[in-house]
Write a protein that binds this DNA or RNA. Sequence first.
DNA 1: GCAAAAGTGTTTCCCCTACACCCATGG
DNA 2: CCATGGGTGTAGGGGAAACACTTTTGC
Lengths: 223, 223
Amino acid sequence: MTMTPKRSISLEPHTIRVQCAVFGIDFEKSPPGLDVLVLREEAGFVLPSVVVGAGEQLVKAAARVLRDRAGLRDLYLEQLYTYDPDKEGIVRVAYYALTSRDDRDPAVGTEWHRVPPGLGARDVTMLDRALLRLRSKVRYEPIGFSMLPDRFTMPQLRNLYEAILGMSLDDRNFAKRMLSMGILRRVGESKRGPGDQGRPATIYEFDNVRYEALKKKGWSFEV
Amino acid sequence: MTMTPKRSISLEPHTIRVQCAVFGIDFEKSPPGLDVLVLREEAGFVLPSVVVGAGEQLVKAAARVLRDRAGLRDLYLEQLYTYDPDKEGIVRVAYYALTSRDDRDPAVGTEWHRVPPGLGARDVTMLDRALLRLRSKVRYEPIGFSMLPDRFTMPQLRNLYEAILGMSLDDRNFAKRMLSMGILRRVGESKRGPGDQGRPATIYEFDNVRYEALKKKGWSFEV
DNA sequence: GCAAAAGTGTTTCCCCTACACCCATGG
DNA sequence: CCATGGGTGTAGGGGAAACACTTTTGC
């Protein structure tokens, strides 16, 4: 029987690839809908993905591909699931991201598509899981605000939840719940442009300081 | 500018290691408590872990280490989180597992310890995450039954939830909720051994067929 | 008959739901 | 003044939480 020498080099090498499902709300259409960011390739669309560099942090790799390929920064980014190695020994670590589409136009080669868009089987599997997580998590963590501009109106917030959850919500009860949680700061009224009809909406900001304080006391967000 | 040739070999190789937090309830003590399975090593305790073989499925690797090192089979096993590569390029994929301690004695070199036991920093981080997930998930999925023998009593089930959630639960309301969900089958009464005091408890089984049927209708478990 | 453990029912209260009207602005 | 969109209050019902006594067994 021989002793196996200790080695500092890698054993059983795998390639690790991070893959991202980026969600954003399309407020232009009515009703607003949930879109996912895809890259146009020769044979259709793919979700953004990239090989993780040696020693690179996973979330950094995800942020890197979204910055380089889609010009996106400062998004909510959360790890989702790690998939088994495929035939080439590639392990995919899936992330999902939330972003406000704001003013930004999508970078060249990227497009926003209403979910579900046409994708390959693996991308679909991952997107399904991301949607499931998003629909569940958006109800007990205030992550939805990442998909809005810093300042937003109550109807926008409600439209966001309706788009994600795929159901319509009672406007009175929705506003009541949101305001009663005490995590929104009223910061003025919406300015009207030409063509804007109706009463100006109140503008709110998400009060993160307040939210963290409440969370520390055991309170939890809930829609 | 030169073309990079396509390669089928791995790029940016990493070693992947799965790591497991196995939870079980200690019904011997009163009140019963939540234990985690640890391996005794030279310098203390560690969570079970193993390098994932080339082409091996992640969950298979987790099941493999728990079978080989701890003699455990047929446990509830769920992926938890994937950690960034460390200095040696090792990426850890964390799983947590639930098992009924039943009759089984722990295999040699393994011990059950009340959480939290003394562990290294990485193991502690992972265990914290596993506990958080367990405490949350046990409330909306019927995974707790994996920590009981097939046949169990209502007080056992309640003790399990009390041990995991770290709070005491009203016995009447608890039984009411559990029975009203219609996922428990009454299968008899507990046999008393010498030394057993008090009224015999009703024995139940988890009715998985019924649970799946309800879930398909959009119903969801909730404690 | 006493101690130990298990089983069961009722009331209260709060929160979620359902629901309709008035207000502010642009044209 | 009319159309458009935004804001607000109330009443009722259902489910969760609080709460105490009876039953069965071993000793």
